[in-house]
Simulated assay, not measured.
Amino acid sequence: MSTPEPDSEGANFIGGTPFFASRHDQRLFYALYVPKDHTPDAAPLPLVVIQHGTGRSAELYRDRWKNFAIEHRCVILTPLFPAGLVEPRELHSFKFLEYKGIRFDEELLHIVDEVGEGFNTETETFYLHGFSGGGQFAHRFFYAHPDRLAAVSIGAPGRITQLDDSLPWWLGTGGFEERFGIAIDMDALRRVPVQMIVGGDDVETWEINNPGGPNWMDGVEKTGGTRIERLETLRANFEANGIEVRFDVVPGIAHKGSEVIPVVQEFMADLLSRR
Rank of each mutant, 00 (worst) to 15 (best):
H52A: 06
L189F: 04
D164Q: 03
F131N: 03
D105P: 05
G133R: 03
P6Q: 15
M186F: 14
F119N: 01
I243C: 06
G200Q: 07
R274S: 10
G212F: 04
G212C: 00
V194F: 00
G16T: 15
T123N: 04
F142W: 06
V152W: 05
L97D: 06
V194T: 02
R27V: 07
K95I: 14
C74K: 11
R246H: 11
I76R: 01
L77P: 01
L167I: 04
F247R: 15
L234I: 09
I208H: 08
M268Q: 15
R27T: 09
I243Q: 03
L109C: 12
W65H: 11
L85M: 09
D113E: 12
A188T: 01
I154D: 03
F19E: 00
T54C: 12
C74I: 09
V192T: 00
H52V: 07
F94T: 10
S93G: 15
A144L: 11
E106P: 10
F180A: 02
R103L: 13
N215Y: 15
Y33M: 08
V194A: 00
P46L: 01
Y61W: 10
R89Q: 08
R103E: 14
P44Y: 06
P214C: 09
F19D: 00
S153V: 08
A11F: 12
P79C: 14
E124Q: 15
E122K: 12
I111F: 14
L32Q: 07
F180I: 01
I228V: 03
H38C: 04
H72V: 05
E221C: 10
T78P: 06
P18V: 13
V152Y: 03
V34S: 10
E98T: 15
E229V: 00
F176L: 05
R89N: 11
A69H: 02
D218Y: 09
T223S: 14
H129T: 05
F96K: 11
V115H: 05
D218H: 07
K36N: 07
H38N: 05
H139D: 03
S8E: 15
F267Q: 06
Q136C: 03
R235G: 02
L47S: 08
A236D: 09
L234C: 08
S93K: 13
I228M: 00
V192D: 00
P211H: 01
G55S: 13
G242D: 08
D41E: 14
D201W: 03
G155L: 07
N237Q: 06
F247M: 14
R56N: 09
H129N: 03
G213R: 02
H92N: 14
I243F: 04
G174C: 04
R159V: 11
P214S: 15
I184F: 06
D218Q: 13
R227M: 02
S166L: 02
S258Q: 13
M217N: 10
G213A: 12
S2N: 03
H24G: 09
D218M: 04
S166A: 08
I111V: 11
K222M: 10
P88R: 10
R275K: 11
G133M: 02
E229K: 04
L163T: 02
V264S: 07
E207K: 12
A188C: 04
D270N: 12
L189T: 02
V34A: 09
F137M: 08
G174R: 00
M268F: 15
E239Y: 02
